[in-house]
């Protein structure tokens, strides 16, 4: 060993020994989680606590006053609009979840099991992702001229002679909202499911086939159980997106239906912060409970680590 080499080894060794004993392993763990923890505490936990506090405040036109009253929650739970909003948002969430699950699962299955070369798979994945290079707002608005009364789709239908006058239900309707959601959120389903499927050992499928399993049996006994994590993760992403949506419902229903968040924004626009905070708390709790329920179906943490 030359002197130079010795020096390097020593230095390397020295650095390692300087790091390890000075930092107990728990400290390193803390350091590793701290960037995310700080972001979550400052940008999520603290504001949520603030909302919680403000939701009990009193208010009038000129200000909000620290208090501990339940009026805001009482108003919230006794307004029929609240229930209608949750029913309508849940309806959208369930329909969109169902469609994106079927479509997303099929796309993922095709990409992972039917496309043979990795290069082709990457290319197709990229094609799925290309629309996401433009913002969601633009992709939403782009549907309006397409679906409108004098839009491209209606004009085509009339030109083909399939209908004599434009179909009004295409735009500013639940139909328009669902189409846009599916367009926006299907990739959120494809990603996690494809990821889960790519971890399935092809030998398993071969073994199943050799043991005489039909295609359907392979699907239900092997592929779906092993993609569970991806399905649940994708479902959580789609579900929370729909429940927290503000823009799509407003644009595509033409303001005909409201979402939970758009009703909340009406309150903020009226400078009524305490009831808006109460609405926000209800939404946070509701979505948290729903997500917790989905997490119970699959232990996502264990599956992700494994």
């Amino acid at each position: 060993m030359t002197a130079a080499q010795q020096a390097i080894t020593q230095e390397a060794g020295g650095r390692a020994t300087w790091r390890r004993p000075a930092m107990p392993s728990w400290a390193i763990s803390w350091l590793q989680v701290s960037p995310l923890a700080i972001i979550l505490v400052v940008l999520f936990a603290l504001p949520t606590l603030l909302f919680l506090a403000v939701s009990f405040f009193d208010y009038d036109r000129t200000g909000i006053y620290p208090a501990f009253i339940f009026d805001n929650y009482k108003d919230l739970f006794t307004t029929p609009a609240t229930w209608r909003l949750y029913v309508s948002s849940l309806k959208f969430a369930v329909i969109v979840w169902g469609i994106t699950l079927v479509v997303g699962f099929s796309i993922a299955h095709f990409l992972i099991f039917h496309v043979r070369t990795a290069a082709m798979r990457t290319l197709l994945f990229l094609l799925c992702a290309v629309p996401f290079w433009t913002s969601g707002i633009i992709r939403t608005i782009a549907w309006i001229p397409f679906l409108g009364r004098n839009g491209a789709f209606n004009s085509t239908l009339i030109w083909l002679g399939l209908t004599s006058h434009p179909l009004d239900f295409l735009l500013f309707s639940d139909f328009a909202v669902i189409i846009t959601y599916v367009h926006l959120f299907t990739l959120l389903m494809v990603g996690p499911i494809a990821n889960a499927m790519s971890k399935i050992d092809p030998a398993l499928l071969e073994a199943a086939r050799d043991s005489g399993a039909s295609r359907w049996q392979i699907m239900t006994n092997v592929v779906i159980p092993l993609s569970k994590t991806g399905i649940v993760l994708g479902s959580i992403l789609v579900f929370t997106q729909v429940m927290g949506d503000f823009f799509v419902v407003k644009q595509m229903s033409g303001g005909q239906s409201a979402s939970i968040v758009s009703a909340l924004s009406t309150e903020i626009n009226g400078m009524q912060y305490p009831p808006a905070a109460a609405s926000a708390m209800l939404l946070v709790v509701f979505v948290a409970v729903m997500v917790a329920g989905m997490m119970r179906i699959v232990d996502v943490r264990r599956e992700l680590v494994g």
């Binding site: 307004t79 609009a81 909003l85 239906s257 409201a258 009703a263 009406t266 009524q272």
Partner: peptide, 9 residues
């Protein structure tokens, strides 16, 4: 504001 939200929904 509350009634207006009802109307819109």
């Amino acid at each position: 504001t509350r009634r207006w939200t009802e109307f819109i929904t």
